[in-house]
Design a protein around this nucleic acid. Structure first.
Lengths: 119, 119
DNA sequence: TGATGATATGTTTGCTGAAACATATCGACA
DNA sequence: TGTCGATATGTTTCAGCAAACATATCATCA
């Protein structure tokens, strides 16, 4: 982990938003094929991962994650087309924003206290 | 409140960051001249407001808020030069980011569910 | 004395972690 | 060929606990 870094959340409504957490969860679901495995990798409880997926699926017109129970391996989860596109757009958004804010960020950091070592 | 909007946090270290909450607190301290009044306006307990100011002052080389006890009116708090500059840079950063991300944001919103009415 | 900053304390909320249950496929075995 | 158990994951519930909160109290200074 290198600092400083940005955490940007896009707030669509009172309880509807997407940020670094949900984006990483989507990405790890795509990689692992499992909601539980993705949540474990991020150190969150399965309940939390499952609730986040439910929120994401309810936020958009089409579900972003498709999960199956039973089946080969006992079950699994995959990103839908909409899920892949939303994740891609969010990553592109992050890139655009980081580039645009670099100058201000450096100016802010000039005010920071010098830290000996950061883990 | 109009949606969508962005919530941006700049993370400098493990527990050192600045986001919408601390920025608004700084702004209200500048307007009211009181940590307690600024906190009240934001619906937070005085303890929380006081802790946030402490975190901010510890994050930067120079304190952002200068508080006096006693005196005319019992005491008060003002933004230092560093405080004014940091707040200004954060607001400018927000502007830059919103402009740079507008196109991606619109693309993302095309995937959203149509909401009848948002409060 | 009055207004505010600083500090201490009791309460509540939210989250986590574990456990129980549901579901569906594969492989073993008679 | 057919049935049953093993297996791995998704779904749901619940008690325990740590973090955050509001409230109350003390300190300070004109």
């Amino acid at each position: 982990m290198d600092y400083p870094r940005l955490r940007i959340r896009i707030v669509f409504g009172h309880a509807e938003m997407i940020g670094p957490g949900k984006a990483e969860l989507l990405q790890r679901i795509a990689q692992t094929g499992s909601i539980a495995a993705a949540g474990r990798e991020m150190g969150m409880s399965y309940r939390r991962a499952w609730e986040l997926v439910g929120t994401l699926n309810a936020m958009f017109r089409d579900p972003l994650v498709d999960s199956t129970r039973g089946g080969p391996g006992g079950g699994g989860a995959v990103l839908t087309d909409a899920g892949q596109k939303v994740l891609g757009l969010y990553r592109a958004f992050e890139q655009d924003v980081a580039t645009a804010g670099a100058a201000r960020l450096e100016a802010l950091q000039a005010f920071r206290r010098d830290i000996p070592r950061e883990k």
